[in-house]
Design a protein around this nucleic acid. Structure first.
Lengths: 343, 343
DNA sequence: TCTAGCACTCTTTAACTTTGAGTGCTAATA
DNA sequence: TATTAGCACTCAAAGTTAAAGAGTGCTAGA
């Protein structure tokens, strides 16, 4: 347990360090606090905080800075939430005013605005197909060997992919398949589409006999192609302008990280996708060594009361948690209502 | 005019500097050349080359390195073309073996392999719609307010975009419009599509009267959306691993450059798009201050004897021109034949 | 025309010194 | 018992100086 004074001092160490990037000295704290005690007393308290693992020293004659645990305590117990300013809200409004036709517009726009509001890198994931309900499909023949398959969900979102056409397949037959799927599978969860189709076909191996295989293949292959997680990354250069990346090696490590889609996906691949709402991961908590100096703030966004996607901000550990958390929550709300009114 | 010996020496300065990144001394040249003259003689020649602007000095007691003019002379007159190794050709084969369904697959694959073969950043532009011939269009209704418009070119490439549907429009009418465009405009250049449509409609304001406006709008708005230049950038981190970017400011400048789509487009926005075949731009020749230390090697690629797109490699001025030029040409050929056999 | 020789320039590297910010401990104080 | 003044001690950062060495440019002679 920490005393009130210790909490006060820890809070000051975190906020001062976030602000100045210089390890915070006992004198600094004595001056900028209203504790009314001398630097010597504060040094004693700092010693306690250090013993408990909340702060550390770069070297003997330097001030203190927070450890990951210190940041964590700050975020959980000490931090004050920021408020989204009129100005910020206005910027979001402006960027959303442009009429969005496709989900790409919404995602990319959100990602850009999120990175510009926070001055950090932003990641916005596309909605998951699995959690959507099937509304209709369209099989558009492109030429002799390819068709474009267009899936539409009940909430109005669209996924497309190219698929091969078997030689023997007539345009008429394609239409039959299309109609069949549209009639029989309406309202089914995309993640159940294949099973549902199989059971439907099992019960009636009549006129559709020849086509049932094709229908299955179309559903199956579509799901494989369309299920890969897509996201939009914006503002990765923002992260580099932070003083903790004044070192070339660190800069390169993080650039390589941003270029590597696989590690980016790892960020969101864990429990985060099952959780709802806001989550803060500090330093080592992301479990990725290449971004030990960074923190990640994420939130899920919903469509029709179902969590369908995620967005987040990646920046240095030394980030303004109070404000950025508010912005992430705000953006997730705004995206939700934009999706709601658009789709 | 340069004497043979001067050409020899210039060539050595360029290749040695490209190889070692250390300014080249007279002694170095005397040793690694078969000129059979002393360093002093070489110093005299170096003096001449410097007077003519081909090489320069960082400071009095340093060796020589090429100026932009020196690199230019080297590329134009001295360089020996590399040959694409068996191994490289094999890598390209392997990466193209995966069946490409859409143009995205081809472009992104090419971009990745180009950057990995050259160890530089690669840019591959999507084919230009304008230079393609119209084959068919499909209007796929998504919901009450949107449709997906799918354009197919004679060579089998596909462009798609979302468009609003006017309230009053019936699904039947949409089909009519679709059929009309498909029948009347087959074989027309996409860049002439609008004019051609207008002239067709002008001559027969009969049954289509109500729909002609809609048809025009569909063509018009589609072209606006689909004509924006798209490209794939890969391997930008490769450029940063070069020793000329050991400096944080330079690193940041180039990262900002890579994040800024507008300046990337500028690279290709000039005469390059009208020219055919290979082009090398060295240092200031790109006319972009943020990449003064870089060179750009580009080539167009064709489809049905028409130049439809571009690809290129961006790396430090100090790059292996002979080999990289070969790789760029090779890739442009391979892309052409892949496009040919796929579409 | 070439080259040996040498003075001169300038960067690079290392070693050393100085400065000052900040701590940790102790002993005195409230 | 909690606080604090005082002081020795530590360590990074910045500045200073010296030495080394790589190369050049020029001159005079072959």
């Amino acid at each position: 347990m920490l005393t009130d004074r210790q909490k006060n001092i820890l809070s000051l160490v975190v906020t001062e360090y976030i602000h100045s990037v210089i390890p915070v000295s006992s004198q600094m704290i004595a001056q900028s606090s209203s504790l009314g005690v001398s630097p010597a007393t504060i040094r004693n308290e700092l010693g306690v905080l250090e013993d408990k693992g909340y702060i550390t020293h770069p070297h003997t004659s330097a001030g203190r800075l927070p450890t990951d645990l210190g940041y964590r305590y700050f975020v959980d117990h000490l931090m004050r939430r920021g408020r989204v300013s009129q100005d910020m809200a206005g910027q979001v409004m402006d960027s959303f005013r442009v009429k969005a036709q496709s989900i790409d517009d919404v995602i990319q726009n959100s990602s850009k605005i999120l990175s510009s509001l926070t001055n950090q890198a932003s990641l916005v994931f596309y909605p998951k197909l699995e959690s959507q309900y099937f509304k209709s499909v369209n099989l558009v023949p492109i030429d002799d060997v390819r068709m474009l398959v267009v899936w539409v969900s009940a909430s109005g979102m669209v996924w497309q992919g190219f698929l091969e056409i078997e030689e023997s397949l007539e345009a008429e037959e394609l239409k039959t398949i299309c109609n069949f799927i549209n009639q029989e599978l309406k309202g089914v969860l995309f993640s159940n589409l294949e099973i549902e189709l199989l059971s439907q076909l099992g019960s009636r191996k009549d006129s559709l006999y020849r086509l049932s295989d094709v229908a299955c293949r179309i559903v199956q292959e579509s799901m494989v192609v369309l299920q890969e997680l897509k996201f939009s990354l914006e503002g990765s250069a923002n992260v580099l302008s932070n003083p903790e990346f004044d070192d070339l090696n660190k800069t390169r490590t993080i650039i390589d990280f941003f270029e590597d889609k696989i590690s980016l996906l790892q960020l969101f691949d864990r429990d985060i996708t099952t959780e709802q709402g806001l989550k803060v991961q500090i330093g080592h908590e992301t479990q990725l060594n290449s971004i030990l100096d960074c923190s990640l703030i994420t939130s899920s966004y919903k469509l029709k009361d179902q969590s369908v996607g995620f967005l987040g901000v990646l920046g240095p550990k030394r980030m303004d948690y109070g404000n950025i958390i508010s912005v992430v929550e705000y953006m997730s709300d705004e995206m939700q209502s934009l999706l709601k009114q658009t789709f």
